[in-house]
Design a protein around this nucleic acid. Sequence first.
DNA 1: ACGCTGATGAAG
DNA 2: TTCATCAGCGTT
Length: 198
Amino acid sequence: MKNVLQRSFYDRDTHDAAKNLLGKVLVRRYGKQLVSGRISEVEAYVGEDDLACHASKGRTARTDIMFGKAGHAYIYLIYGMYHCFNVVTEQEHFPAAVLIRSVEPLDGVSVMQQRRGTHQLNNLTTGPGKLCRALSITKKLNGVDVTESNEIYIVDDGFVVHPNHIATSKRIGVEYARHCTEYPWRYYLKNSNYLSRT
DNA sequence: ACGCTGATGAAG
DNA sequence: TTCATCAGCGTT
């Protein structure tokens, strides 16, 4: 594997890491299969004061990973049926992560189509639950170090994202988070055809 | 607009 | 031990 993002990429301000994850390639290997997608939409979840962040409940069995070292996968089950994939950011003991919300399919499209039960490219991986199903990401990978793993990692393949092409908005699905719902902590590629529905 | 689905954390 | 809630999705 080439140009795998290392811990220093994640061990910094979550918003910087989030914006810089746009355009990078999320790779998932299992057995002989390799599937991947270019990240087009992310959200930042930052600290115990962020009421949308799971860590606002404190350090629990579930959120423990987020308090740990940057570069580890934080994966949870939502609504009983879907997984969400995050990468932990910032210094140890400060809970924060970037949620990967959407990617553009690259390698292994036919496998993803099979797993998702659709052929439409712009519906394969355009949502946090959809991309986890397409890439076969489950809680088995929770806590995995994505800077060391052969099963899941993120690569810089040289794709250039111009700062003008990054847009921001409120985060999706966090209406319960009082004043924190308004934070413009969703980042996406403005001209992408691979975004989750708003 | 709604139902699916089960882990999670808070309440008792 | 129960209960309400939930960083989503597909169908209506």
